[in-house]
């Protein structure tokens, strides 16, 4: 544990922001290039987690526990969101026999 605490002391804040930005962008790319609704959903989870990590880092940086409490609430929200989203995906699969998001384009025009 002590070595871990020592390890974090030399990492600049910018590197954490960079890591979160990269993972958030990977999530955005995943939403854009995949047609499988569940993989799109997982990419959204990736973006949520990047933001969670950044909130935790700023909480440690500013020595403020509120940031970590916010992450806790975001996790509760994500659990609710996943339950609803997967139920919707199951319903879509039952109605269209596919989870291709490109089929669901009737609201486009």
């Amino acid at each position: 544990m002590e070595s871990f605490l020592e390890a974090v002391k030399v990492v600049p804040l910018n590197h954490y922001i960079l890591l979160s930005a990269i993972i958030f962008s990977i999530g955005v790319i995943g939403v854009l290039i995949r047609r499988n609704a569940i993989v799109v959903f997982m990419s959204v989870e990736l973006m949520l987690n990047a933001v969670n990590l950044l909130l935790t880092v700023f909480s440690v940086y500013g020595n403020d526990p509120n940031g970590q409490v916010f992450v806790f609430f975001i996790m509760a929200l994500a659990a609710a969101e996943i339950a609803i989203g997967l139920a919707i995906i199951v319903m879509i699969h039952r109605n269209t026999n596919s989870i291709d998001v490109d089929i669901l384009n009737r609201l486009k025009w």
Binding site: L5, V8, V10, P12, A21, Y61, N63, Q68
Partner: peptide
């Protein structure tokens, strides 16, 4: 946008009991 900001300080854990 990150590069435009000033050089950042390292993330230092000030209070061990924070989390």
């Amino acid at each position: 946008a990150i590069k435009l900001t000033a050089k950042s300080n390292p993330v230092v854990l000030q209070d061990v009991n924070l989390g």
